[in-house]
Amino acid sequence: MAQQYDIRAMADLIESLRKDAERLKKIAGDIPSVQKNADRILANVKMLEININDVTEILGK
């Protein structure tokens, strides 16, 4: 069923989301509302990675 999806494109976007959220955290300085909401975004990004990125290598994508 994996071939029905563009896994590589999804994985690339997820990587980009991680980079954006990490950069947001970095430039937020000491603003807790940005830091902590970025942490929550990153936790969700991790779930996307578990669901998509972790399997790309196995599928040769």
């Binding site: 069923m1 994996a2 999806y5 896994i7 196995i58 599928l59």
Partner: peptide, 25 residues
């Protein structure tokens, strides 16, 4: 096999050999 049945159709239908490679990793 209806893909609407799965939360993640990629992982849930991964052939056993690939699933085991994923597990080892």
């Amino acid at each position: 096999m209806n893909r609407d049945e799965y939360w993640n159709p990629i992982l849930e239908t991964l052939p056993l050999e690939q699933l085991q490679r994923l597990q080892l990793k």
